[in-house]
Design a protein around this nucleic acid. Sequence first.
DNA 1: GAGTAAACGAGACGGTACGTCGAGTCTTTTC
DNA 2: GAAAAGACTCGACGTACCGTCTCGTTTACTC
Lengths: 212, 212, 212, 212
Amino acid sequence: MAVPGNAERPLSRPRRRNVLSHQAILDATGQLLTEVGYGLTIEGVAARAGVGKATVYRWWPGKGALVIEALSGALQRVPVEAATGDLRADLLTAVRRAIEIFAFAPQNAVIPALAADLMGDPVLAQQFRDQLLRPRRSVVASIVRAAVERGELPAELDIELLLDLYAGTVFYRVVVSGEPVTDTLAEQLVDLLLDGKPPLKTARKGEESTSS
Amino acid sequence: MAVPGNAERPLSRPRRRNVLSHQAILDATGQLLTEVGYGLTIEGVAARAGVGKATVYRWWPGKGALVIEALSGALQRVPVEAATGDLRADLLTAVRRAIEIFAFAPQNAVIPALAADLMGDPVLAQQFRDQLLRPRRSVVASIVRAAVERGELPAELDIELLLDLYAGTVFYRVVVSGEPVTDTLAEQLVDLLLDGKPPLKTARKGEESTSS
Amino acid sequence: MAVPGNAERPLSRPRRRNVLSHQAILDATGQLLTEVGYGLTIEGVAARAGVGKATVYRWWPGKGALVIEALSGALQRVPVEAATGDLRADLLTAVRRAIEIFAFAPQNAVIPALAADLMGDPVLAQQFRDQLLRPRRSVVASIVRAAVERGELPAELDIELLLDLYAGTVFYRVVVSGEPVTDTLAEQLVDLLLDGKPPLKTARKGEESTSS
Amino acid sequence: MAVPGNAERPLSRPRRRNVLSHQAILDATGQLLTEVGYGLTIEGVAARAGVGKATVYRWWPGKGALVIEALSGALQRVPVEAATGDLRADLLTAVRRAIEIFAFAPQNAVIPALAADLMGDPVLAQQFRDQLLRPRRSVVASIVRAAVERGELPAELDIELLLDLYAGTVFYRVVVSGEPVTDTLAEQLVDLLLDGKPPLKTARKGEESTSS
DNA sequence: GAGTAAACGAGACGGTACGTCGAGTCTTTTC
DNA sequence: GAAAAGACTCGACGTACCGTCTCGTTTACTC
């Protein structure tokens, strides 16, 4: 692959960047995301990071890309819970995780705002899906795929759609319909996806609601 | 419509609003929504409507409320397709309708952007749900409720969740995951919701994709 | 002239402007001119005046026009010394005045910098000449013209050139050649202009020098 | 040069001694002076010269010094017209030369801008006068001095002032008063300086005007 | 049908942030 | 060991909108 002898030399573009500034910008972005959400400004990030605005613009085309990279960094520092091998339990964990992220995490308002920006910028959308979405989806996808291989689920299962079903429902409740998001919801979703059981208005257990 | 005499007399307050300006503002908002989307500005609306900015602010607290009212007006001018009584067919129509709105309508990017604004403004969220969401949901809800009463669906069916399931999945595909939104998706969703059939990667028919 | 009945209606452009802001901007400009000279910034002027930048740009196209107007206001507050009727004395006063302005006034560096900007902006040049230059020149011109009418100077005297001769010499010494500007210079110039006496290296009296 | 045997290696890289870079910088400065005038930037010069900004700053303290040196180089390549020995003719030539430089040369706007910078920087002023001004002035000064020695002009003539008189008048007309600069002006100036004739509004011959 | 008070168009106001440019300094890489 | 390349902080640019606030001017309700 590489030319023998000087394999480490990046011939095309060395692109020297100041690692300290770079990290300070991402840290400042992370802080401001929790403080003011997606309404943060590049000017504010630069000031917080002790950096010139131009330095931010040199490396990121805009707020969206910057936020995605900052979230991506935070994401990688969150450990992935190990799969137990129990499909129902693992899927329930995944749904609860989605509920946690979309409904209760402190910066849960960031994702909808960011998502809205994706609609008009395919490049940004690609970056978002590659850096933020795919890593998380692939964790659940491999759990489901293993179950398929064990014969617990149909061979032709549309795994991507399964993922969209539970994540989309939770997301939509939080962002659009405002219906309550409780742990019962997680169970209803798993029952539907694994057993085809239609969602019933059974007695609810936890009654946490979004409401924010 | 107007009762001759004093039909337009507001009961409580001498709300002497200029009906022409009011409508001009809503019209301008509608035009700008299709032209530049949710990125429209109050300044632009006022200019387009031939109206002072203060007149806009006098009647609407901000961009969100204005857009909701404009969309609501447009919504009322769209006729509701009659229910056939065939549950599967009517539900399929509803899903296709959601796909149409979220994925293919010219201003489909408006809803996510507006939704993002709802996260930080409960009053606006209430307005959105009352004026835009509930009317559409109640159409489908009554279709489903009729089927429940006919015994075609379980008595305890969680209708709200059913609505969130298909709408959320479509919305999430368009806005977040970017997975393709095709007519096959509509059939998969209906199969799952009515028959509990897990979504399979069967041969797809229509292969329209979102692409935006 | 005006249509009877509504004579007071300004038909063209009323152009409401906030007099307080307007004056605060000019005052701030004047202060900053003495403090930092022509290197002042619009941003600094706006901040000092407690005004938004846009307000400055609304009424002035740029730094040059703003500075001219500020200087013009200051100029009008300086009383014009009365002509004595003694041509030599009055002209000497005028030359000394030019020396004062170009060589010793606190903001004497402003005029050259401003003048340099005039070279590329005919509109600004016109404004400068109308508002700053002409008022001062016309004072001296009328003194000289009176002397012409009394027969003390030739009827065909090129008064404009006379003005350029002494002002230009002083200006050039200060700005370009750096030669000393003393009171002897004033006398040499008057001797040359009134009597045609060539400038001699006579014993100098005052030996003030520019040097700044 | 230093290394024996392969002294002819200038083609490999813009390397080594300053000579190549140095000249490239001066050339680029000259080009940009004619293209954009004194508004050129160090960044632009460096880019045009194919040189890093730091290289420019290593050898020149700023834009002013760089421009002076570039102009000085150009000046030396202009041949000095020989003196005829006819004082009036030679002086007329000198005045016309000043008119040419200040009013009609393509970069005539450079000198005022540069001059404005001199006001705040005595070191730069000294450099300007040594490298640009003195060479030209000494040419005319020696012509006049020769006439003094021949007895054609008074022994005590203040030659420096004479130079400032005509150069300053021309400069001032172009930069400040905007009065027309024609060939008649040259004759009026010479008449005044040599014969003490006051400037008259005689019929003008050439009516070229500055207009810039 | 006159008086009057609101709502109106127009747009100026103090602000915030935008994204760009250049200054002058500093660091890394290359020859 | 000089210098190319260019990243860095800083500050100002001129623009766009924000939401508030006068201005006179309609208008249409009240008396």
